[in-house]
Every structure is written in structure tokens, then in C-alpha cells.
Design a protein around this nucleic acid. Sequence first.
DNA 1: AATTAGCGCTTTTTT
DNA 2: AGCGCTAATT
Length: 819
Amino acid sequence: MQDYLSGLNEPQREAVTYLNGPLMIIAGAGSGKTKVLTTRIAHLLNKGVDAFNILALTFTNKAAAEMKERIEKILGNSEARNLYIGTFHSVFSRILRAEAHKLGYPNNFTIYDTDDSRSVLKTVINELNLDDKHYKPSVVHSRISQAKNSLVGPAEYAQDYYIQQEDMRSNRPAIAQVYQAYTARCFKNGAMDFDDLLLKMYDLLKDFPDALHKYQHKFKYVMIDEYQDTNTVQYQITKLLAAVHENICVVGDDAQSIYSFRGATIENILQFQKDYDDVKVIKLEQNYRSTQSILNVANEVIKNNKGQIPKALWTENDGGEKIRLVRTMTDNDEGRFVADTIQEQKLRNHYFNRDFAILYRTNAQSRSFEESLRRMGIAYRIYGGVSFYQRKEIKDMIAYLRLIINTRDEEALKRVINYPVRGIGKTTIEKAMVIANEQNITFWEVLTRAGEFGFKAGTLEIIQNFVTMIRYFQSMLETKNAYDVAVQVGKHTNLVKELFSDKTVEGLARYENVQALLNSIKEWVDDRNNRAQIDEDGILTPEAEAQAGAEAAMAAQGNTNGAGAASLGAYLQQITLLTDADDDKENADVVKLMTIHAAKGLEFSVVFVGGVEETLFPSAMSINTREELEEERRLFYVAVTRAKARLWLTYANARYRFGNLVQNEPSRFLEELPAAHIDKSYAGGGARNQSPSSNMGSGFERMQRGFGGGGDNSIQYNDAGNRRPETGNRKLETGNSKPPYLQLKPTAPQTVAHVPAADFVPSDTTNLQEGQKVEHQKFGFGMVTKIEGSAHNPIATVKFDQNGEKKIMLNYAKLRIVG
DNA sequence: AATTAGCGCTTTTTT
DNA sequence: AGCGCTAATT
């Protein structure tokens, strides 16, 4: 019997059983969307569709894992593990792992994260002689990212009138060249950035008819979650994939579209209905998650947005408590209020830590909540922010692993070549870079052929030892799994020892972090090996299939991989795409702290939304156009609809920003709340002050705790009692106070590039005389005009042919005496 | 070459 | 306030 259908309401059941042809599900917040998706897939499998023929694209890897699990539960077998299910990025990286050679990339290509991308950009920007102060890697990156997500390549970028106008206006006309150079560099490094995972997938389908044919027929059923947050590339890819069978089901909610900053466009939802002849549209409008009060607040606020897809979200749930609005003096008070309230609610309503979530607009806001929770001894976990994998010591370790897998990965190479310190300094690295660029070979090849390029004997030996070491690690790939290789790397590079010998507090933490990384690799390896055993029926899982592709490619390079599914290459493939949310210690009893963006798709019994203030929420960056503001409002809608039972909205009179206390007005969104469902007794007299002068007075009100109960043990949410906030003189950035910079670096202090002779050997300069001719590695040829300083610290003044007069400290600088 | 002092920038949100 | 990067120092 198909009893899994019985627990569904009418539109849900319709969505589950409508299997063929284009289908669009408009799923309101908390309307059982995940349930519908999982049941729908289970239904497909139950109807005899092969799991290999189903592609499901989710928003997080965690969501994908959960869905797999739930499907297995419904069906009572493990068929679901053969599904192609995951985020756009992870599914496509898997496919590209098998197909990259078609595009000229190595199958073991490296995935660059945002930091890597910026680092490459910085290198490229400097090589183009542009000023990285003006061409900020972060700005340039977002520009390039935007282009990629809109399917605009470097050539098209350079020719697009509108884009060029924009770059001219911001005085960065050379972004097109940077884009071009960046693309070339990534390609040379055998690396794809996040955007490339989408872009290259698109290229694959567009330029290789056989590949298109293969995947079009493989994926007979395509499902896409969070469709409102897909961008142009994603849209085009899925359109291509579904073109043959047209069994494409998209699920979304235009009211929850919050990722336009990374190219997502609601247009995709509207366009969907035009792309196919008869699109079935099903709306899920019954909310099972939240109380009436919460839902009413959410509906009321979102009404202020124009052009929504009409829908009426309703619930049979209880009215519930009113939404509480709380104003505090500072962000620190806000933190204390929330921590206190959590404590109080735990006692009063028997909640566990895990029932609470604290949501905020920006990661920086986590600090005050964190401090208060720690002081109260409440266990918590912060999601997002600086992730584990962004720590220096972790990046160093990973960089070694990356280099072993892909020696073209210049970012990784530069990172580890002199860490731990082994005597390959800046000069050597620069020299190698110059050679690499001149000869058009990789940095790594320069090292392997170092003997040809005249490095001095000592340096040459160090380089050769380094190359030998990396090759030694590579030789292990055949027989050892990711963990065993990583342990060897930690040992032989002295990296672990180095950290261990650092007995400072930070040093200890770093050591522990590396140990934690090794443990997590171990866990991953064990998990992989277990799974590999389960799949004994000989059917290749998508993972194993991609792995086979990678292995074939490596075999072609004479580098077979016998470590199976737990190989280092397979480990690295997924590591960059992991998010904080993915490593689920789901059941840990902790209060969860995260940005509203990160909370998308989640639900909690009790939710606190902090910092509901002008300039913060809505963000000061997003109040200039109606579109931006409406996205902020949708974000507010997402925040509110995360709550099942209880909801607090908090805001502070003033908060620390960049080290100083800044006044903030309450958010304009608070004015849109329906009064009937709001408890303002702790809001200091009103959602928003009636007149500017009342602002100061209400700020001094004492706010007491103890909802309903004994008010005897009141706590004052007001730190230094009589600090008078400065009103009315909030600093505003005008943003255009500076004259536009010239885009080119000022030429004066710039040294004229000098490539030292291949056989440059520094001379002994203890007896250097005035009038002698010398060569400097950077400044070129010149004549000594003066010798001064003491015997133990002689300083020579040299007049260089091309770079003017310089004072050279002979103890440190290297000069070759020419005559 | 390697360590340290001081400057300037940061905070929108993420794969 | 905190961090990373540049410049100065040894």
C-alpha cells in the first residue's frame, strides 16, 4: 500500500503524484515542502523509476542527506543512496570530476574558495600593474562572479557597453582585463572557483553534444528546491538538462527569495511558466509550523512588498503568544536579555537549549550573544562566520594536500613552499614566478627543473628536497587513504611538530585544530569505507562513478589510485563545498546562533531576532532601491517564519560598531507589525519613537525581566547607568568625499623590473669600494657612490642605472660585484 | 630573513 | 576593537 500518501493534505498529495511534465510548486513557509519533495521522490522510486535517473538539487548538503534518509525510511530500502542529490555545486563538481578533461581541465582539478579566488586576483591585479588598493580583490571578485553567474565571459564582458559604462563610472575600467587574466590563471592552475562549477557545467552541456545527450537521458526526472534562489547559470543548466523529458519539478516561494546579491532572480519562477507549454502549478498554503500570531505577523509584513505571487498562508495551529518586542540600551544588554530569557524560558516552559535559535542580520552581531551565553553557562554553537576551514593552520595543512593532488595549484604551492620555514624566501619565490611566466610553465615545473635556472647551490638543494618530499607523498596516493596520507604530511613536513612546540595559548589551539582536522579526515575515511562495503551489489553510486572517472584520468597520467572511495582526491573534492550547517551535530543540546540567511529552511521552537534596527536590518547597503528594501523585508519574513511557538524581536538603542558606540533607530519593519499580535511592554514605549526627542527619554527606562511572574528580582538592561547617548549626530558616510583615484599605480616609487642573470651569485661585499659597479637582484646595475656606517653594519649608497639612488645595507642585501 | 610596530579597513548576506 | 598587511627594524 502507498500509505505514505495518507499523511498528506490535498495539494500536497497532488504535488507528490503529479509525476510527468513540468510542475511548479509554490510552497509557503512551513507548508511541508521537504515532506512533499521526499515523498515525491519515494513515490517515483516506488513507481519503478530508477534512482540513477533522478536528479534532485537542494540548497544545502545537509538537506540532501536528510532527504535521502527520509526516503530510505519511507521505502524501507537503501535505493535512495543511488540518487543524484545535493547542492548545485556539489552535484556538478561530481560530474565535472569525470568530465573535466573535455574542457581542458585536469580531472583532479582544485576547487578555489573565496579566499583562494581573492588571492589569485590580487596576484593578477599586481601583475597587470594595477593598484590593489583601488582594484580591491573583493570588489573585483564580486564583479567577476556576477558576470559568471549571468553567463558573461571575459570577452563579452569587455565588449558589453553597459558593463563597461559601470566600470568606467567606478573608475575601474581594467576589470575586463583582470577577468581575462584571472580566468587564464585559474585554468593554468587547474582550478575552478565556485562560480566555475556552474559555468563549466553549462559549457560542458552547451559545447559537447555527447555530454548533453548523456545527461539529458540520464536525468529523466529533475527536481529543484529553493527555486526562487537560482541564478541565470543554474536556470540555463536545468533547462538544458530537462529539455528532453520535461519532467522538471521546481519548488519555491517568491516571498523567501533572499539571494539576489549572488545573482539569484525571481524572474526564474516567472519565466518557468513561459518555458514549457503546460506547466502545472500547485500552491501549498497551509502552514504546519507556526502559531497564528507568528503567521499573522509574517503575512502582515510581507504585504508591504509589491508584486508577490498571490497566496494566502493559513494555519490550524493555536493563536499562541504574542510576539514580543524588546528594546535595550546597547548590544551588550541585548545579549544579556536574550541569555536571561533563554534561561527563564527553559525553566518556565521546560525547553532544552536546542529549542532556541538566535538569528541576526550580520555575523558580527554574534559576539554579544556569545559572551552572554558563555557567562550564563548556556551551551551554544555559532554557525557560519569564520569557518574551521578558514583558519590559517587548517588552510596550511589542506594546501599541502591540495598540492599533492594537483601540483598546478599555485595558490597551494605558494602557501606551503616556505611553511614550515625551510629557507625558500620571497626572493626565490619571486624569481621562480618570473621564470614561470616567461617560460609559460607552472611554478611547480620551475621547481622540478630548478637545476636549469641557476638557483644558488643552497637554495637549489632546499628546492629539490621539497620536490622530493611532495613526490614521496604522491607515491602514497596509490596505496593509502586520505587520512594516512594526511598523517604522513603532518609528520614529514614538520608542520605538526612546529605547532606542538609552540606552547602559547594560540599555538596550543592551532595544534588542537590540526588534530581535529586529522580526526575529521579519519571519520570521513571510515564513513566512506563503510558505505563502500554496503554497496556490494556492484552498482556504482554516483560518488563511485565520479571517482572512477577521476581514477581513469589519473591512470592516464600514470598515477593510479588504489585508495578507493576514501582517497585524498575524493576528500578534497568535497571539503571546499562543505558549509558549517552541513556538519550536523543535529542533536547536540545547544542554542543555535546564525545569520538569517543561514537559517533558511530551518525551524525552531523559540526564536530571537536580534538587531532589528535601521542601518542594520534593513542593512544600510540595501535601502537605496525598492528592490533592495523588499529583499530585506523578505529576509525579515524568513526570520519570523522560522519560529514555531515563540518569537522575540529585539533592538538596541546603541551598539558598538568598529569600536565605537553608534546610535540606531528602530527598524522600519517594526512599524509594519500588526499591533494586535505584538507585546510591546518591553519595547520602551513604542515600536518607533513618535518624535526624535522622545528617543532619549525612553532610552533611560529601566527594563525589567520576569514575564508575568514575580518582578522582585528585576534586572536592569542598561549598562553604565547614566551614560547619556549622543543623539542627533550620527555619523553618516557621504561616500563621495574623495576625488576619484587614477586607476594606474603611481609610477614614481615603482621599481623598473629587473630579471637577474640566471647565474646571479652574490659577491662577498666586505671590501666593497666606492666606484665599483654592482648588480642588485631587483634594482639592476648601478655604481657605488658612497660607503658609510660602522664596520658591523656597513651601508652602501648605490646609484642605479634605472632606479635612482638607494641605500643598501650590505649585511642584508645581496650584491654581485660586476667591476 | 625574520620579527615587530603601526596603519587602515571592516560589516551584508553564501556556494 | 581586532585583524591583516606594509614598512621599519634587527
